[in-house]
Simulated scan of single mutants.
Amino acid sequence: MSVTRSAGALGAARPLMRLVTMSGVPILRQLHLEERLLRRTADNWCVINDGTAPPTIVMGVSGRVSELVEIEPVLRDRVPVVRRYSGGGTVIVDQGTVFVTFICNKSAVAGLQPFPRDIMSWSGQLYDKVFDRFGEFHLRENDYAFSHHKFGGNAQSITKNRWVHHTSFLWDYDVKNMDYLKMPKRAPEYRLARNHTDFLCRMKEYMPSRSVFTDGIITALGEQFSVQPTDLETVLSNDEEFVPSTKLLSQQDLEEIVSSKGSSSLGVQEVEA
């Protein structure tokens, strides 16, 4: 009985988490939405986007294109390259990727300090509840992994009063797309210099369906938050003045890197307001 009363008391005090679920939204549009929710609202958000098109390379704010992307094949095949507003590494995403983003006020999680390691620890504990029946789940350095194989890459952005933790989950992936990415110079120790296909795994080999995955996230969130499905149109007013920092790199940007033979002119420093 005491446990029931305690759960009820906690439930009454749970902060609100607005839930937005989408399917197939282009990753550039998703990132613009996230940045707007981060900077123009005061609510906590969970954004889930099931798949994206077309296949797109997404880089962290401080990544150097020449070090991370095979530029000539990307130009040849016209693969979009996006520089997002958050830190973290480089990924290629497509219909096989499931995106989950948490956008929270600093006070949203009791006792959580707004630092990268603390946020990763919190998220790892939350996802442990999602995956505990499906595989040997680990938070390995800054990745989500089944045993020693990565299936989730993370990035974060921390502002004065709020933070973002977003993940690209590999439900499935096209091996050919990995050829557009270079082996990063900085890699987690547990990678052990493995190539992409030896290092990664597919979630579909561990879980029965995408809906089981997303339902698990919502259930786990419900233990800490009052989760409220939200229609964005009822929340966001027109905000034509908002200019996101996430950008699609132009063909000219990429061609200039090729012509300068690896110039680092597109490398930028990560700065948060």
Rank of each mutant, 00 (worst) to 15 (best):
D143P: 03
A12Y: 12
G267T: 10
Q251R: 13
D118C: 11
L37W: 03
Y85F: 15
S6G: 14
S259W: 15
L28R: 09
T52N: 06
E270W: 14
D94V: 07
T101A: 03
K247W: 00
S168T: 08
D118M: 09
Q252L: 10
L266P: 04
Q269I: 15
D132V: 14
D118A: 13
M207I: 11
D50G: 04
R194Y: 05
G24L: 00
T167F: 03
F199C: 08
T230I: 00
V93S: 04
M120T: 12
L249F: 05
G60Y: 13
F213C: 00
M178E: 03
T246Y: 00
S86G: 04
S250K: 04
H32M: 10
V74A: 02
L232K: 02
R186M: 11
N238G: 13
Q125F: 03
T246R: 06
P188F: 04
H138L: 12
L68S: 07
A108K: 00
H148W: 07
G51P: 02
R40I: 03
H32N: 10
P184V: 05
T159D: 07
P229N: 06
M207P: 06
G111T: 00
E35T: 08
D94P: 09
F146H: 08
K182S: 14
V243K: 11
N142M: 01
Y180L: 06
R83E: 04
E223R: 09
R5S: 13
M17L: 15
F151T: 04
V82I: 14
V258Q: 02
L248M: 13
T41G: 01
P15K: 12
Y144E: 07
I257V: 13
Y173W: 06
C46M: 14
L170W: 10
M178H: 07
K150T: 05
Q95E: 15
H138N: 11
